[in-house]
Each structure stands twice: as C-alpha cells, then as structure tokens.
Design a protein around this nucleic acid. Structure first.
Length: 551
RNA sequence: GGUCUGUUGGUGAAGUGGCUUAACACACUGCCCUCUCAAGGCAGCAUUCACGGGUUCGAAACCCGUACAGACUACCA
C-alpha cells in the first residue's frame, strides 16, 4: 500500500496541492528593501502592554520601509478562544493608533493573501500536509496521551532528552496497511513531521535582536496537524508566512527555542526561511526577581488602565518606543518638532534582555506631552475623560468653559510651560479651587504669617487700597511690594535676607497671604493669573468666607 | 535533566579593544533662580561594568569556567 493511498484516505476532500497555493499567492511587488510584517495574536482576550509593544514594533518596521503590516488571527486552539476576541484586539489597537494595511478588519478582510483567519485556512494547511504525507515527509501517529507520558517517564529515568524523536518515535515505523486499518477503525490520530534533523549538528539563526544563535538541529517529530484537523502553531506559521510573503517575523523571545523546528518546517515545504527578530518581553519586579509583565497580576499591564487613569495614548506609545529603541528618547529631545514617523527604528538598538516596565518614567513622558498641548486641546481631552470618569467635574468645566481654558492656559503658552499634570485624572486635584461650587476650604495653608488679625488686615488693606482688576502683572507686583512695605515687610527677598532684623518678613510672605486667602492652597500657579480669572467679586466672596472662618 | 538567552547605579540604558576619570534620560539628594508651586539651571548619586580565571602593552568590551535570572522542552500559542 502506498503513501498516496493513506493520504487520499485522510484527505479525500483535498484536491489542490501546495504548488497551487504557492502560485495563487504571488510575490508582493514591493520596492527594494520593503519589509512585510505581521501581528498574529490568538483571540484570547483584550490586548495588554506586551502585545501593544510587539505590534507597535511590527508596524513601525514595516512602515519605515514602505512595506506591509498585516493582522492574522491565530485561532487554531478552539478551547482558549474568547467571544469577540477578534474585535477586542482590533479596537484596542486602533485606540493606540495601530492599524493594519491588510488582514482581518472589523468588517471582513482586506488584502489578496487571505483568508487571514487560520481556522478558515484549513484546506490550505491540509493540502500541504497531504503532499508531505505522500512524499514521506510526515506520518500518521496514533500515540495517545498515556503512551506519550510513558515515553516521558522512561526518558526522565534514563536521563535522556525529552520528546518524541528517533527511537522513541515508534509510529514512524507503522506499515501503511496498519495505518489504513486503524484509521478505518475510527481511531484518532495526528500527523507528525518525520524529522530529518540531527541533534549533533547545529543550525544557525541570525536573529535580528539576539544576534547569531547556534542551536542543535531539530530532530523532534513534532505534531503538525492535531486530531481536530487543524494545524499546530509551528506548521501554520511556516505555511502562512510563506504564502503571505512575510519577510520579517517579529515575535516574543519565548519562540527562540523552537526556531529550529520552524527552520526545518520551512525547508520541508520548500520555502525560504524568513528573517527572525525575537524581542524581549516587558518585565515586572516581583520579590526581587524579574518576571514577565502579567495581564492578571499587574493592573498597569492592561491597556485599559491608561484610559482609566487618563494617561494619553500618545504618551504610552512614546514610552514603549523609548523602551524599544534606546536612542529614540534622545532623538526626540534633539528634534522637538519631529514625531514618531520621522524616527527610524533599528533592531540593533533593541535590548537583548527584558526591560522592567517603569510607570514613573511613563508618567514623566505623559507630563511632558501634556505640557506641549494647547489649553483648548487639554480642555477637549479633559471633557472626554471626565465625561466618563467624573461627572461632577465634567458638568463644572462644561458650565465654566472659558474660565477652565484660561486656568489651563496659565503659564502654558511660553517656552517653558508648566508641567503640573501627569494625567487627566490629576487635573481636578490641581485646580478645584477655581470653581466656587467646589470651593469649601477645610484647611487654610498659611505658612509664615499665621496671625489671623494680621491676615485680615492685610487683605482688607489690599482690597481697599491696592486692588485694581486692570493692572498689568508688573503694576500688580509693584503694588504687592508697597503693600509689604506698609506692613513692615521687605520689598525684596534679598533685602530681607541681608537684614532679617529690620523686617517682619518679605514680599513673598505677603503674596502667600493673598494666595491662601483666595485659594486656601499654598501651592498654586501664578497668583496674578488666578486673580484675573476669579475677578473682583469672587475674590471678595472668598475673603468673606475666610473672615467667617477666622472670626 | 537537556537546549538556548541574558547579567553595566534604585530604573531604562550608551558602550563593538585605547577618545571611559563609564554618555544620556527617569527617580532621588543638595544648591541656585524665584511671590509659592510647576518648571529651568548647576551639582551629587557605578573608584567600576555578576563572580573567578585567561588573552593583550591595554578589557565593561575577546575567550573559558562559575553563579544567578529567564525562556523552551504540549495534539497552547
């Protein structure tokens, strides 16, 4: 009995061969040096940081070279699949500006190399497998779980290498007659690669990130088709990336160890091995050890965390690129007018070891990013954020739109803008006192001058004698000096420091009285601007509140 | 057990045999500036690159070994 008869028995419905598909999916006509990458997740839930990181790199590399970046869904494990998994992936990535030139979309597929969902490619994989079977490159295996376990025990006891290979791969030697019989009897089976590799010989992987890695050749008879007729990752990878003409496979470094399997698989289907880049994962410190950032254990690993805290997507992307390419940060520092698109990604600048995910650094990037926005932009984003997370504040900033924008604009339109906010969620805590509705001081943070009578005297005198809403900042501050002088405080801080005995304090102490009387806070942005926004009536009202408290 | 990979301050890192007395950035500390704050400026923070050998006139860089950490070793990806 021939191999072909076995192949026909199993794959009676497969009429096309590998050659057919190879001819069907012609080479992409791309310019010299164009890189084709793919992001190929399993639909097992929402996107996390590590996935965003990997897809960002894939996209960047492709687009830097006028190449193609496509999305393929690897759903060959039906047990782990999650409902809406695919749309979750697409939406989450889109939120962060990661979109695809080709592949699976929210409404159908786009591109000429589909289907892009592996479960829809069953016949394609099977055509390749059928051919392998006929050529004797693969074989039918009936080994059950218990049998495999036995082999493993034997290997452990005799300190042999684990796995289904060489002398342990008994089903290699099954006669076609026996195979035929057992299939006819309805016995379950898988298809395994009949490996020609030699463990004592080396394969070299020229990895774009890890460099030259030498490993023993694969000699494992790995499963290429599971009993449900779907391929394993290894085989699907070889077939898909051949047919879809992926030039660079960028994936997590947990795959590096199985690269020899993939090299053999590409060879056995008569295809060229793509270039590999095995990237290191984002890590997290855990009891003195590093471990992979985990979606379940670490809240900051969930992409939704940033939306909730109000850290802009742009900051997250910038941070990830900073981690990905160590020279990106310096590039941005020296090219403030340029953006991510102007930067050229380089695998050589990727770290070989996993970086600890640094939330502090991300916050700093976020803070800097927010400081570059126009007040109106901050306002719009703040509206969007509070609408979802802080309805009370949303209503207030909607009602007091102009005041809010003016407040956000304090010391913003200048060379060295303020960097008060690290996220949208921290804005309210910084400017709440600008809203009468929220202004219910529980604690006046007076510092040097704390005498209640003195404070009220200063405020009365200021309002009666010095206040004028039309003053420029310079005039206003000169008046502050006069006010200080009137109460026995030095006009200049230096003057006070030189002759501390001559004065009760200095002009700064007087400003502090005003600041706290009007906002209750000792730390605020420019006082002049704050008072301009509040206006005379509201300032007077606030002084009344203070007096009530202090009488 | 086997096979790979990694290890430079608290963190991310630069570094490709002499320009290194180890960039830069975050964090931290101090000073300056200043009406407070946020910034900004300046300075400090690894006498040394996990450890031990070797090669060399010269090593963080090259070689060997050890330790530690991580990955893989599924009909999961």
């Amino acid at each position: 009995m021939t191999n072909k008869e076995i192949a026909d028995l199993i794959f009676s419905h497969i009429t096309k061969d590998a050659e057919y598909y190879k001819n069907l999916y012609k080479d992409r006509n791309l310019s010299e040096g164009a890189i084709v990458t793919r992001y190929a997740p399993s639909p097992t839930g929402f996107i996390h940081m590590g996935a965003l990181y990997a897809s960002l790199i894939c996209k960047k590399v492709a687009h830097d070279t006028n190449g193609i970046f496509f999305l393929r869904i690897e759903d060959t494990d039906k047990k782990r699949e999650v409902e809406d998994g695919v749309s979750l992936i697409i939406k989450d990535l889109k939120d962060f500006g990661i979109s695809f030139d080709e592949g699976v979309t929210l409404d159908g597929e786009k591109g000429n190399y589909g289907p892009y969902i592996q479960s829809k490619r069953k016949e394609i994989y099977q055509a390749f497998i059928k051919e392998l079977l006929i050529n004797g490159e693969a074989y039918v295996s009936f080994a059950k779980e218990e049998e495999l376990e036995q082999i493993r025990h034997l290997q452990e006891n005799t300190k042999a290498r684990l796995g289904y290979y060489g002398p342990y791969a008994k089903d290699r030697n099954l006669t076609n007659e026996e195979v035929y019989e057992r299939i006819k009897n309805g016995e379950e089976f898988v298809i395994r690669l009949k490996s020609k590799g030699d463990f004592n010989k080396k394969v070299v992987i020229n990895d774009l990130v890890k460099g030259k890695v030498e490993m023993p050749e694969n000699d494992l008879d790995v499963v290429i088709m599971k009993k449900d007729g779907l391929p394993t990752y290894h085989f699907a990878h070889a077939v898909d990336d051949t047919l879809m003409h992926t030039t660079h496979v960028i994936r997590g470094d947990e795959w590096l160890s199985s690269a020899p399997i993939h090299v053999e698989l590409f060879k056995v289907i008569g295809a060229k091995v793509p270039k590999y880049a095995h990237i290191s994962p984002l890590m997290k410190e855990d009891n003195g050890n590093k471990r992979k950032l985990s979606k379940r254990k670490d809240p900051e690993a969930a992409v939704s965390y940033y939306e909730e805290v109000g850290i802009p997507k742009e900051a997250v992307i910038t941070y990830l690129m900073t981690v990905a390419n160590s020279n990106f940060e310096e590039f941005m520092m020296h090219n403030k007018d340029k953006g991510l698109d102007d930067f050229k990604f380089d695998f050589k600048k990727m770290s070989k070891s996993g970086a600890l995910f640094d939330l502090e650094k991300l916050k700093n990037i976020s803070k800097n990013y927010l400081s570059t926005l126009k007040a109106e932009e901050v306002y719009e984003n703040l509206l969007e954020y509070t609408k979802k997370h802080d309805e009370e504040f949303y209503n207030l900033i909607t009602l007091h739109k102009e005041d809010t924008i003016n407040t956000l604009n304090i010391e913003r339109n200048c060379k060295k803008p303020r960097k008060d906010f690290e996220s949208y969620s921290t804005v309210r805590n910084s400017i709440w006192y600008m809203y009468d509705e929220l202004y219910k001081p529980e604690n006046y943070e007076f510092t040097t001058i704390t005498d209640k009578e003195e404070i009220i005297n200063i405020m009365n005198t200021y309002m009666e004698k010095y206040f004028d809403a039309n003053d420029t900042q310079e005039v206003w501050f000169d008046k502050m000096k006069d006010l200080a002088s009137e109460f026995g405080y030095a006009k200049e801080v230096k003057e006070y420091k030189n002759n501390p005995d001559l004065y009760k304090g200095h002009v700064g102490d007087i400003s502090m009285v005003l600041r706290v009387s009007v906002t209750s806070k000792s730390m605020t942005p420019n006082l002049y601007d704050i008072m301009q926004i509040l206006g005379k009536e509201r300032i007077l009202k606030r002084i009344e509140i203070l007096k009530k408290e202090y009488n």
